[in-house]
């Protein structure tokens, strides 16, 4: 009986994770970005990983772990505020090596927003471009709607665990 319950929870999580990946891809298509990624704080530590990405040009994201407050995702989670990089590595705070996902994916411009869970930042969504690019204002509504969808899916994953 317990095993069956565990299996049901796992099956449910797989479906939610697939939905998260699909939303990540949807966001990439709708804002015509080169790369879109979801960074999430680990449940057992403050470390941050990139479990869902779209448009990646290599597998480096799978191994990257950033510390709370470090990197673009760490800074967005620590401050709970959006962050924009216009022309990496020019005019960035700190050194370029403090932005591993930008280096790993050869990103030049990026926009990141926090993912909120129970009123606290628990992750970040990164929209990246491999050339200098400014996100159009009308894309803001699309980004907001899809981040809300991502937040809802993450909340369901946390609740099912």
């Amino acid at each position: 009986m317990l095993l069956r319950k565990v299996c049901l929870v796992m099956e449910c999580n797989v479906q939610l994770e697939e939905a998260l990946l699909a939303t990540c891809k949807e966001l990439q298509v709708k804002v015509s970005s080169d790369f879109t990624g979801i960074a999430l704080q680990q449940s057992n530590s403050t470390d941050i990983k990139w479990p869902f990405v779209a448009g990646n040009c290599n597998e480096k994201y799978k191994f990257i772990t950033v510390r709370y407050g470090k990197g673009i995702a760490g800074k967005v989670i620590a401050t709970g505020s959006p962050m924009t990089i216009e022309h990496f590595p020019d005019n960035i705070i700190g050194k370029s090596i403090e932005y591993p996902i930008m280096l790993a994916e050869n990103l030049i411009s990026a926009y990141a927003r926090p993912i909120m869970l129970n009123g606290r930042p628990k992750g970040a969504v990164l929209i990246g471009f491999r050339k200098k690019y400014t996100i159009q204002q009308n894309a803001d509504e699309v980004i907001k709607t899809l981040i809300e969808k991502i937040e809802d899916l993450i909340k369901r994953i946390y609740n099912s665990n």
Binding site: F63, T65, I97, P100, L103
Partner: peptide, 8 residues
């Protein structure tokens, strides 16, 4: 280094 930059 690997966990920072993803390079093996």
């Amino acid at each position: 280094y690997t966990s920072t930059f993803g390079i093996i």
